[in-house]
Design a protein around this nucleic acid. Structure first.
Lengths: 333, 333
DNA sequence: CGGGGCGTTGCGCAGATGAGCGGATGACGC
DNA sequence: GCGTCATCCGCTCATCTGCGCAACGCCCCG
């Protein structure tokens, strides 16, 4: 049952019918008499035209979603929920990122039941999500930072700022981790975690009802490189060990497990296991470079909810044997 | 009655409704209960979504036409008929040109009553039209070349070849003008026209029922420059005199009249007056560079039928005060 | 040459959809 | 505070459209 096999004269007829139907708004009956065919034939031609992609219907709007791709990805990876933002009409990577962040903000706002405590990470993506959240998106939510992020290069702590903004906009309380993401020695990390204030925040983080976090690329662009925790060379070494990106500060491979256990033991924050067992773990992942991390996350249970763009969704569906794959990819590309 | 004025929450609702309707194929009733609105509201939102361009329906096919743009241009310039080819999915100027040529071939094939004698010009566009015509597009049509075109630079006569191909594919006879397009002296032109064979062809051309011709840009790219009749400098001089392009070898200004009467008197072929008074004069004009010539032609009655691309159509509609202008341009761009 | 299988066509019908209409609701000016 | 106007909403009705079904023609193979 390969669709798209149409008589070439039927194909031309379908094009004419589609023009009259969608551009001129004529009824199938009118079109039938104009083209000297029955109205049933017109209906079938129009259906074929849509099926073969001659007629392309796209929804051009910053908040448009790709429902078909959502369903396919959700089913394939057994996610609890998913949002796939449309990239129709997007011209820059920043714009795409912003659209996905907006989608995440919308999702969070609509999340029911609202979490009592929300664990959040930081990064470029999370910053955008915080910015997109409307004032009053929730009421009295406790927002806990789940991994360290005191910037070594920039003035001010953008990581904590993210948590603060999210909390402020919900008229809630923020619990920040004003400590480095990665320490030089495992011992330092252990002792910091034992500090009463820090331990309190980490404990609170471990008991959050929901987590919201981004993902980083494994490359010189990584936020951990920009912040000065790692050098480009160190990240390159991680890539050689199989790293595809980082989740809450921890670089994982395609199996979803940290590629460097020593580095991992120096990383402050919630262990990935906690994310993996969380009831609600919302990953926000956008952009060409993050397809691999996204795949690693969804295949290894590192999120229950995925919020991403249609390009990433298409990448996640590649190699799928699902019947509607072609359609979904066409739409998502 | 300015459309596009929508409540922002309505707008979001419209986006969601459009997703469910067009992507998922749900009924308006289902969407209504899903979004907690009545089905009538859903219908109105969908209508608004289409009106404001949130939902964009385009027909992606090499032979797709722009019916709305066709109507607008036809009405505005009082044409007898028109074809506007869609440029959706076109990547190169050549592809666009080919689509328009195909449209012209289709138009010619469907033309009823079929002309007994068809006058044709030559050029890149006409060459493509000839190539696109199917074998047997008509039966026994006499094809007459209406302007000289013996190439001075290339071997063989591509101008006559065009007429020959068109005639052959209709199992008809060709009458060619194996003479230069432009002569050096007016006297030579006069004596050539007095030659019995030439005069016979020209007379036949003058009595054709229909004419098919392209248009050239006024620039170094002109076919008349490539063929060696004019130098780039001479064309530049013509541009300074107001030339916007050439029609059957004659450079015209925005008023549709030859800009250089001396040059015109050295040009062999049908006078523009004959085209202007023809019952059926089919102009085939495609491409960014030909917007101005196209305008000159349609505003001065140099064609009764226009076959062009949607970009040119949009250009022709610019400055129009027609109510549906916005929509048409959106669609045509 | 004939029969069976398959795709295509025309059609009835029920469900889906769009146009027009009165009433409610809210904004604005007096 | 009140009258007026415009807009929006839900509804009825007529129309449009998608789906299932039977008949037809076509092609392949025996």
């Amino acid at each position: 049952m390969l669709r798209g096999l149409m008589n070439s004269s039927d194909e031309l007829m379908a094009v004419r019918a589609a023009e009259l139907y969608y551009d001129e708004g004529r009824t199938q009956d009118e079109i039938g008499s104009a083209l000297h065919i029955t109205r049933w034939k017109v209906g079938r031609l129009l259906a074929q035209a849509r099926a073969t992609g001659i007629v392309r219907i796209e929804i051009v709007h910053p908040r448009a979603r790709r429902v078909l791709a959502e369903q396919a990805v959700k089913r394939r990876y057994g996610l609890k929920d998913i949002v796939v933002a449309s990239s129709a009409g997007v011209s820059s990577a920043e714009e795409l990122q912003r659209r996905v962040a907006q989608a995440a903000a919308d999702y969070l706002t609509a999340l029911r039941p609202a979490p009592h405590t929300l664990g959040v990470s930081w990064g470029r993506t999370m910053h955008d999500v915080a910015a997109c959240l409307p004032r009053g998106w929730a009421h009295g939510v406790g927002v806990v930072q789940i991994n360290g992020g005191l910037s070594l290069t920039k003035y001010g702590d953008t990581a904590s700022a993210t948590a603060l903004v999210i909390a402020q906009k919900a008229a809630g309380s923020a619990h920040v981790l004003p400590i480095p993401a990665i320490l030089e020695h495992t011992a330092t990390k252990r002792s910091i975690e034992r500090d009463r204030a820090i331990a309190g925040v980490l404990d609170r983080a471990a008991h959050a009802q929901a987590y919201l976090f981004g993902a980083g690329v494994a490359g010189a662009d990584s936020a951990l490189v920009h912040s000065g925790y790692l050098t480009a060379e160190e990240v390159e070494a991680l890539v050689r060990k199989g790293a595809v990106g980082d989740v809450v500060g921890r670089f994982i491979g395609v199996d979803g497990v940290p590629v460097d256990s020593e580095l991992d033991s120096r990383t402050v924050g919630l262990p990935l296991e906690r994310i993996r067992t969380a009831e609600t773990a919302i990953a926000v992942v956008a952009g060409e470079g993050k397809h691999e991390v996204a795949r690693a996350m969804v295949t290894n249970g590192l999120c229950t909810v995925l919020i991403t763009d249609d390009g990433t969704a298409a990448a996640l569906l590649e190699g799928s044997a699902e019947p509607e794959r072609r359609e979904v990819q066409e739409q998502a590309s």
